[in-house]
């Protein structure tokens, strides 16, 4: 058995022991099932959500807001980052705003977006977008400012102009920086969507969470947390594969 397999078996065993202990403690009454329902009950809730199909409209709504926010945030972050890095005027205007947005917990904007944009998709998309935009803006802006000058001069001495510099140095560098932050951006987009739904909405995993909390349904709350964690982990795996594909030269 390889070291990786040994590690995986150990982790699986540790998880099983933890679940078994949790189940036992809950069943013998040492843990109050009202607050800490046993894993079997949480598993049952997950099964019901999936089997009845109740989960899918909510998961779909959250995924739509998260993916749309991720896409718009990437486009805005890259565009504004490039503009600020290449134009001192744009940098002067944008940098203080972005620093301010970066300094605050941006989820506090959620109520404002609900007031402005309503409880539909737009307010969730806006929150996910702003979370991603600020992250990607700084990745691109700082990345371009700190681009390896030796590579720039290499291109210049080979006779390359701005177009060649963009194609050979800036765009590959920006791709590396963006992909380096991509997994965090996926997490941020999901955070924005779920928090937006939690504040005010009529569907989505955040809405379900809010419902579970207001009805003191701990089993549903834990089940939803597990579903969100699983979904984000799947997205992380996809993001990692994409990163390894786009930045193949880094993983050789």
């Amino acid at each position: 058995m390889s070291a990786d397999q040994t590690r995986a078996v150990r982790r699986a065993l540790a998880l099983l022991v933890l679940l078994a202990a949790w189940e036992t403690l809950s069943r013998i009454g040492w843990l109050d099932p009202f607050y800490v329902p046993p894993p079997s009950r949480v598993g049952g809730v997950v099964f019901d959500l999936v089997a009845t199909g109740d989960l899918w409209p909510h998961l779909g709504a959250t995924a739509l807001a998260a993916f749309a926010g991720l896409l718009v945030g990437l486009v805005l972050g890259i565009g504004l980052g490039f503009a600020a890095a290449l134009s001192p005027l744009v940098a002067d205007l944008l940098e203080p705003v972005m620093i301010l947005l970066n300094a605050i917990p941006r989820v506090i904007l959620a109520p404002l977006f609900v007031i402005w944009l309503g409880i539909g998709l737009a307010s969730k998309l806006a929150l996910a977008t702003i979370l991603v935009t600020v992250l990607i803006f700084f990745a691109v802006y700082n990345g371009i400012k700190e681009v390896d000058r030796r590579l720039v001069e290499r291109i210049q001495t080979l006779g390359g102009g701005q177009t060649v510099l963009a194609r050979e140095v800036y765009i590959p560098s920006v791709t590396a920086w963006v992909m380096g932050n991509f997994k965090v951006a996926v997490g941020f987009a999901f955070t924005g969507a779920v928090v937006g739904e939690f504040v005010a909405s009529s569907r989505g995993l955040g809405y379900l969470l809010q419902f579970a909390q207001s009805t003191y349904n701990a089993a549903l709350t834990i089940a939803l947390i597990l579903i969100i964690m699983t979904f984000v982990l799947v997205l992380f795996a996809v993001a990692e594969r994409l990163e390894r594909r786009l930045l193949a030269w880094r993983y050789l």
Binding site: E153, R154, L158, E168, P172
Partner: peptide, 18 residues
């Protein structure tokens, strides 16, 4: 000062392509 994201061949041909 080679481009890390380009292969050896792409680096050598860079000036020629420019």
């Amino acid at each position: 000062a080679l481009l890390p994201w380009r292969t050896v061949r792409q680096n050598v041909t860079l000036g020629l392509r420019i």
